[in-house]
Design a protein around this nucleic acid. Structure first.
Lengths: 125, 125
DNA sequence: TATTACGTTTACGTCAACGTAAACTAATTG
DNA sequence: CAATTAGTTTACGTTGACGTAAACGTAATA
């Protein structure tokens, strides 16, 4: 595992544009180090990016992603903060369970659609 | 189960605006009957809407939703069409499995974040 | 009969998440 | 040394998915 990454390395690895990566920085989701004016990404930065993209695949907005990702960060020792976090976690869990339900239903539908298709193909052949 | 629905009934049932429902019609996802110029939705229309919203919760674009929903429709007896459909189904399945994976990982992360929070609360109390 | 509730069309506005182009720098390579 | 290659900033443009306002029709209700 490399100790650092360039912006183009990350863009290739995750198949996104450099524009997107810079955009995530623009809105405060990433804060890579700089060598001169060139961005240098640490493994931790890479992990953050990974989390952002995972969130995206689940339809989570970048704004919401920020909150979730920040949960994993330490130093949130404020008591009210913690309670808010637990609350946010519960909300996310609810949404995810809903998604799970949606997915299983959709997969079932897809299976049916497929067998229907295969049947039709048989008839047609 | 009612034989028909008004636009406001559907908007209340699914907690969306009437604007959204009309928008789905604008882009050809719905095609309700009319009584005079008033829209009248059948149970089948309602099901379509349900599918659209389920797709939305999974981050599926309206455009992609149209394709998926059309899979469930009959009358696609063209052979090439069927092969394309099976292909599309497989693609969807792949994406959904990826989402499943993402969700289980996120749920794990959330669990960890939560126990961390609870621990921190204990220490703080 | 006026107003309230519910429906309609048309059309411009908005917001997130980038795309795209311009104009520049800095390092490597033929 | 000229030309790629990879990076940068600035800033306007675009797309999807609606929001919002205007201007209007129709039917029930106070």
């Amino acid at each position: 595992m490399p100790l650092e990454y360039s912006i183009s390395q990350l863009s290739k690895e995750f198949d996104i544009t450099t524009r997107s990566i810079r955009h995530y920085e623009d809105i405060g989701l990433l804060a890579p180090a700089r060598r001169g004016q060139t961005r240098v990404y640490s493994p931790a930065d890479r992990t953050r990016l990974k989390l952002i993209l995972r969130g995206k695949r689940l339809g989570i907005s970048l704004e919401d992603s920020r909150e979730i990702i920040d949960m994993y960060e330490p130093g949130k020792t404020n008591l009210d903060q913690l309670k808010k976090l637990i609350d946010a976690i519960q909300q996310q869990r609810t949404k995810l369970n809903q998604q799970l339900d949606d997915i299983t239903k959709l997969l079932k539908d897809l299976n049916k659609a497929e067998t229907d298709c295969v049947e039709a193909l048989k008839d047609n052949h």
